[in-house]
């Protein structure tokens, strides 16, 4: 059984590489019992969305014309 430390590492790596079938299974089992890690997963997704939003904002803010 994964602990949260291991689960968070896998969740981070899942954003950079394809996880193995076994890794994904372990994660799914862990999410089943851990609210914190389910939220962590969602937060990592949000961090990516926010990062892209930040870049977009830096490119386009102040824009009123087009």
């Amino acid at each position: 059984m994964l602990n949260c430390h291991e689960a968070t590492r896998l969740m981070s790596e899942a954003r950079d590489r394809q996880l193995s079938v076994s890794e994904r299974l372990h994660l799914r089992l862990h999410w089943g019992i851990c609210t914190g890690c389910r939220r962590f997963r969602r937060q990592l997704e949000q961090i990516s969305v926010l990062s892209r939003g930040y870049v977009k904002l830096n490119r386009e803010d102040n824009d009123v014309s087009s």
Partner: peptide, 15 residues
């Protein structure tokens, strides 16, 4: 390796 009680991630709301 489990979240400390105060450190467990919260809900972040609407992005």
């Amino acid at each position: 390796g489990h979240w400390l009680q105060d450190e467990s991630p919260r809900r972040w709301g609407n992005p």
